[in-house]
Simulated scan of single mutants.
Amino acid sequence: MLLKQSRFQKNRLQHVEQHFAQLEKRFDGMHLKSLESKLHPHLFKNILNSVQSHAYQTYYTLDKLANVLDYILYEGRDDYVSIKSEIDFSRSLIDINKIKVSPLFDIRVKTKVATSHEYYEQKLISPMLCLDFIENAFKHADLQSAEAYISFYFELSDNGLFHFTVSNTASEHWQLTKQNGGMGIEAFEHRLRILYKNCFKLERFTENNIFTAHLTLDLRELERTKMHITG
């Protein structure tokens, strides 16, 4: 019986290692020019190494990583993607980042989206819209305090507004970064203005050491703008 279990574990580990090697090969073959403006390759390389070092526990995470890389390689090259695709990508990216924190850390993900909504699968937004929010949440959150948390909330309302809200307990490092300037945030907001003109609203505030970023996109206005450009 023990020999059978050992053989099963060995075969599973070999399968995981092969899956990792395939992912690493796909990563290395990416066109770096398309990645530079959309994500940090070194960060993903570190995630790959982290996943490999926890091979027994993270088979699920490897599948999520494959989803993220597929999105970057294929849909990420398009000018527009759907809300469905962006949420799927974001949830996979969140799951990947969970491996870097304690299993007991409070990470909340909530989605309020009707799959029958007319804009759910319509390609209206630029790919990887939520990437910076997710990366910054894990980068600047307090991961040590007992009451610390990170919260992600996606909503597609009946009136055609897409909401994405991220809240996290702010770390001391984030407070220092905020005091020394916010070029990363300013660059991201500038990118939003280029992409969405007057079709977005970005709110950022800190209250009781909780940092919150709330992005709203007017999908109806984006649809009209897109039709005007392509028409």
Rank of each mutant, 00 (worst) to 15 (best):
D106Y: 14
K139Y: 07
D79H: 13
H40S: 15
I125K: 05
D63R: 05
N97Q: 15
Y149P: 00
S34T: 10
A137R: 05
I107N: 02
I47S: 06
K64I: 03
I87D: 00
I125H: 09
L104M: 13
N49Y: 12
S34R: 15
V51R: 03
Y80R: 11
P103K: 15
K64Q: 14
A114D: 15
L39Y: 02
M128C: 14
Y71P: 00
K33L: 09
S37Q: 11
V68K: 07
L62H: 05
M30G: 03
V101Y: 11
L93Q: 06
Y149G: 00
K112A: 10
D78Q: 15
L32A: 11
Y149K: 15
F105L: 08
L73V: 05
N136W: 12
G29M: 11
K110E: 03
L35H: 01
S34W: 10
D106L: 14
A66N: 14
F44A: 03
L93H: 06
L35Q: 04
L43N: 06
S53N: 09
L73M: 13
L73R: 11
S53C: 07
E135A: 09
Y119N: 07
D88M: 13
L39W: 00
Q57H: 13
L104N: 05
S82V: 00
Y120E: 06
K123Q: 09
E86W: 10
D70I: 07
L35M: 12
I94E: 02
Y80D: 07
H42F: 07
L35S: 10
E75K: 13
T115A: 14
L124Q: 05
L143M: 13
T111D: 05
A141G: 06
D132S: 10
A148C: 09
V81K: 06
N46V: 07
K98L: 11
Q122V: 08
I99K: 05
E121S: 12
I83Q: 04
S90K: 03
N67C: 07
K139N: 05
F105Q: 02
D79S: 06
E135K: 11
I94W: 11
L48F: 09
F138G: 01
K139E: 00
V101K: 03
E121I: 04
I83Y: 01
H117E: 01
N49K: 15
S102C: 08
N49Q: 12
L93W: 09
H31L: 13
H31V: 07
Y71E: 00
K123Y: 07
E121K: 12
K123W: 01
N46K: 11
M128T: 08
S145A: 12
I47Q: 08
I107H: 07
